[in-house]
Design a protein around this nucleic acid. Structure first.
Length: 315
DNA sequence: AAGCCGTGGTT
DNA sequence: TAACCAAGGCT
């Protein structure tokens, strides 16, 4: 049976995230923190920095909470779905996946792939998310007693490759005989879902201050909310309309003539970047100077802003 | 309990 | 290119 630590780590990383994006992060985490006890002993900033770029940063905060909770009980993961689901960052999907894959328990693993495969096999026309309970019941009926982990991964792999969202390869599908949606020629349309509301555009201003010794002014964002717990350039709130300008330190700010554009889950962001050189003894109102800034430690939107600001400072 | 929460690849 | 989409969880 695979290492529960590896299964848990990979499943958390895979939440709403593609396999290709996860692989380098999984390799880096397991190399740097080979056991859950070592991860539990890591500094918060190191883990957040290692997670930077992967997105959904609450996962990283909960990952640490979970690792520390497991370390408290001898570094052994609980083997039942219910006990797993009680840990931070482990919901119904991840609890079932870890129970099935790492512990061989019969658990009904339901993710977006499973929902899509169930909706197609049974030609469920009810739109999401209303169809969720019915799709879960269908998955329950099909889940075997033997090798539940292999079964779960097989259905998810089918959904990720052949029974794909946009253009399913029904012609080579191992379940083509029994698929009601294929028989009706509607597989690609399922599961049905309601149209999503358009994303609003928010504006913001961020500030890049460079001290005489080359250190840059950064701040750690509050734990809750967007990019929570991550390192970033200080600035005002991101709002629809005119953003507030709140420089983190007194300086001769100049506007970089290049906007940073970035799209989050529920809004588009247009960011104005201000840059300034400040004296060696300058004292910031917010944040702190960082000597050797690694762009890789920043979330993607902040990497973009940093690059634009540095380009202006050095050109 | 519906809204919040990232990112990069695909169409 | 703008929209869609991914092995969801938290509040």
């Amino acid at each position: 049976m695979p290492d529960p630590y590896h299964v848990w780590l990979s499943e958390v990383m895979l939440q709403q995230t593609t396999v290709a994006a996860v692989i380098p992060y999984f390799e880096a985490f397991t190399r740097r923190w080979p056991t859950v006890a070592e991860l539990a002993a890591a500094e918060d900033a190191d883990v957040m920095g290692a997670w930077a770029g992967l997105g959904y940063y609450a996962r990283a905060r909960n990952l640490l909470k979970c690792a520390r909770a497991v370390a408290e009980t001898g570094g052994v993961f609980p083997g039942t779905e219910a006990d797993l689901a009680a840990l931070p960052g482990i919901g119904p999907y991840t609890a079932a996946a870890v129970a099935a894959i790492a512990f061989g328990r019969r658990a009904v693993v339901v993710d977006g792939n499973v929902e899509r495969v169930m909706a197609r096999i049974h030609n469920v026309q009810v739109p999401m998310p209303d169809a969720k309970p019915a799709l879960r019941d269908l998955a329950e009926t099909l889940t075997p007693d033997t090798r539940p982990g292999d079964y779960a991964q097989a259905v998810m792999d089918l959904g990720a490759t052949i029974c794909s969202p946009r253009s399913p390869a029904c012609g080579i599908c191992p379940w083509m005989e029994g698929c009601a949606a294929r028989a009706e020629g509607v597989a690609a349309e399922l599961p049905r879902k309601r149209p999503k509301p358009a994303k609003p555009v928010r504006q913001g201003v961020v500030y890049l201050a460079r001290r005489a010794d080359g250190a840059l002014l950064l701040e750690t964002r509050p734990d809750k909310g967007l990019l929570g717990g991550m390192l970033g350039l200080p600035g005002g709130a991101w709002v629809e309309g005119v953003p507030e300008e709140v420089p983190p330190i007194s300086a001769a700010w100049r506007d970089v003539d290049e906007e940073v554009r970035h799209t989050f889950t529920h809004f588009h962001l247009v960011l104005r970047v201000m840059v300034a050189d400040v004296a060696a003894d300058a004292v910031p109102a917010r944040g702190g100077f960082v000597a050797n800034v690694a762009p890789a430690d920043l979330p993607t939107v902040m990497r973009k802003a940093l690059r634009v600001g540095l380009d202006r400072l050095f050109n």
